[in-house]
């Protein structure tokens, strides 16, 4: 695999992508995007936009977690 940046990107983005996809599926199969509220107002986006934004929000969160884990694993003191 090419250099460190690309490797880190693959290691972080891919697992978080899969988990985000799973989270998206579970979340939106139980919650109708049209019943969501954003800052007290019903969400005004089209459903596809809500699904998409939801997906990227999930991915952002899972990605942040993966990145943190990668960073912690790197800093793991040698035993």
């Amino acid at each position: 695999m090419p250099g460190g940046g690309a490797r880190l990107f693959a290691l972080v983005s891919w697992p978080s992508f899969m988990v985000a996809a799973a989270a998206e599926a579970v979340f939106f199969s139980v919650i109708n995007p049209q019943e969501l509220y954003l800052l007290g107002e019903p969400v005004g986006f089209s459903p596809v936009a809500t699904y998409s934004i939801g997906f990227f929000a999930f991915w952002g969160v899972t990605g942040a977690s993966s990145l943190l884990t990668a960073w912690l694993a790197e800093k793991l003191p040698a035993r």
């Binding site: 695999m1 490797r7 693959a10 290691l11 891919w14 697992p15 899969m18």
Partner: peptide
């Protein structure tokens, strides 16, 4: 093959 080697659970 890198997907299989490094990324696939």
């Amino acid at each position: 093959e890198q997907v299989c080697k490094y990324m696939c659970p």
